[in-house]
């Protein structure tokens, strides 16, 4: 039987008059779980609660078998947690090594030699081994993202929460990211992203959030299957489609109730996602 490492029930969180999470039920185990959703869906809020940075207004949370509402349990969770915030806020005058080393100290790695070895390891893992001595302000946006990612990987955490980890990374770096994020089968990774390709490539489970609620929870394949028989190609735009967009070869891809003579195609994860969430999600993906 597989174990559940992240479990929420009826999770709620509001910011003044805005409801960020409206009764989220979630069960996540080892492996990579993708968290999809449009802007304002509540993904970042959910990750912040899972990272024990934010307390929910209601509902329950259990992480790695512990209740983060309890101070001792919360500390125990943080010792096995790696978190990449959406905007990590790096120190521009620190070198890459110094910043990751600083976080390592805060992760209670007080043995200097061992800590420095671990810092070098994670920097190599994200491809910044030769940039370790450069100041962060001198690094490109993608490199800074990788510095932030490196600190999350310190200590090989049992639970890794990544909020938009591939933002700003070029395609090669995203491929590389896919390699190292999926190294440990016992690790639980929750990955919040807009990049459906990353979810399709990496995730064995997907959760779709919209307006603070779970709209889908299942495998990537199941999400794709939602669009089975409802995705077709045509030369011209079909007004009957729920969603349609121009493809690279000049034709149009459609999602919706396909006409009888439609040229149906194999649905992708993105098709399933768009079918689920409609125009708003399509506009965001296109942006």
């Amino acid at each position: 039987m597989s174990q559940i490492t992240v479990e929420t029930a009826g999770l709620r969180k509001a910011y003044r008059s805005t409801t960020a999470l409206d009764g989220v039920d979630l069960r996540v185990g080892p492996g990579i779980t993708g968290l999809l959703g449009p802007n304002g869906a509540g993904k970042t809020t959910l990750l912040r609660i899972l990272a024990t940075v934010l307390a929910p207004d209601g509902g329950t949370v259990r992480l790695l078998g512990r209740d983060p509402a309890d101070a001792d349990d919360r500390l125990a969770v943080r010792r096995r947690l790696g978190y990449l915030p959406q905007e990590p806020g790096l120190h521009p005058n620190f070198t890459a090594f110094e910043f990751v080393d600083y976080v390592a100290i805060l992760k209670e790695m007080t043995d200097r030699r061992a800590r420095h070895g671990e810092v070098r390891r994670v920097l190599e893992l994200v491809g910044l081994g030769d940039q370790a001595k450069r100041k962060i302000k001198a690094l490109s946006g993608g490199m800074r993202r990788r510095v932030a990612l490196a600190q999350a990987l310190l200590g090989e955490p049992d639970l890794l929460l990544l909020d938009e980890p591939t933002a700003g990374l070029d395609p090669e770096q995203r491929l590389r990211f896919r390699e190292f994020v999926s190294t440990s089968p016992d690790q639980t990774v929750v990955l919040s992203t807009h990049q459906t390709e990353d979810v399709a490539a990496l995730c064995n489970a997907v959760v779709v959030l919209d307006q603070g609620r779970v709209r889908f929870s299942g495998t990537a394949r199941e999400l794709s299957e939602l669009a089975r028989g409802r995705v077709w190609l045509a030369e011209a735009r079909d007004p009957a489609a729920s969603l349609a967009w121009r493809t690279g070869d000049g034709g149009h891809r459609h999602i919706g109730d396909a006409p009888a003579d439609a040229r149906l195609v194999e649905p992708t994860l993105e098709d399933g996602y768009l079918l689920l969430l409609g125009r708003r999600a399509a506009d965001e993906l296109a942006a």
């Binding site: 069960r27 010792r79 007080t110 929870s217």
Partner: peptide, 28 residues
């Protein structure tokens, strides 16, 4: 409540190793 097929909750995992003191962190 949605469930991920074939997965059930288990008892608490093994306790982590004894924690280093905050003082050591502060010194570092």
């Amino acid at each position: 409540m949605e469930t991920l097929a074939g997965r059930t909750a288990v008892a608490s995992p093994p306790a982590p190793p004894a924690p280093p003191a905050s003082v050591a962190t502060a010194r570092a």
